[in-house]
Amino acid sequence: MSTARLRLRRVPLHAAAVVTIVLCLFPVYWMITTAFKPNRDIQSASPQLLPHTWTLDHFRTAVDADGFALFWRNSILVTLSAVLLALIVALGASFAVARMRWRGRRQFMLMVFVAQMAPWEALIIPVYIISRDTGMLDRLPTLTLVYFMMTLPFTIVVLRGFIAAIPQELEEAAQVDGCTRMRAFRHITFPLLAPGLMATSLFGYVTAWNEFAYANFLIIKHQDSRTLPVWLSSFQNVFGTDWGATMAASTLFALPALVVFLLLQRHVTSGFAAGAVKG
């Protein structure tokens, strides 16, 4: 009796949960299913929630489009190197901020917070001019550097929170036992930081993977250095009314992020949040 009433009381709660889940997932679901539907089902007056017939034609169109593999590789290369660079640099900076006392520490953190708000859209013209004058136009390292700087401030803020949350006594105990400071950090703090590193790198990954304005502006002449977001947008222009192919291209573009996030769901939610809470 009482458990039944308890269950009844939870009905509105679960209804709200179902509504939220559907609202979150439907666009993703619709993108993927549209990509698998044949054209006559896509352009029909009554859309089917579940595809009756499945086809891979749209994916074939998308993959066979000019330069897909190349742009995919470019995107991966730029994204991974930007994230890795940001992680290494941020690890040093956030360790210095969280664990050491030095003059200028406060000013440094203030600078990081200001950098977090940098108006990247307004900097695109000077960055273009600077990279043109230094011969860095149309080259992937330029993009890598820009993405590195875009993700760095946030990475420092979150990592600082993670490092501050790890009790310093652990390191000190290791140092008392004769570890050097470096070793203490590497063997004690670093493993505990894994969720933090995971969460921040995911954030950087998504930022860099998505970036469009700079990728579109800094790489003009050398078409082989283009990245996936630019490809996707030009694809949409070429295949404008072919919604199946456009959705297949979007799916292929979104897939890495979706898979990685889902696999690391636990780290994203708990790990990332813990860092933000302490930050």
């Binding site: 939220t20 889940i21 666009p27 998505n210 992020a257 979706l258 996030f261 769901q265």
Partner: peptide, 22 residues
């Protein structure tokens, strides 16, 4: 619910824009 949220969060902006147009 958290997985659904994470999936919506992971959706790249350009892909999301395209899907909303559709």
């Amino acid at each position: 619910l958290l997985s659904a949220l994470v999936l919506a969060w992971a959706m790249p902006v350009i892909a999301a824009t395209t899907v909303f147009q559709w």
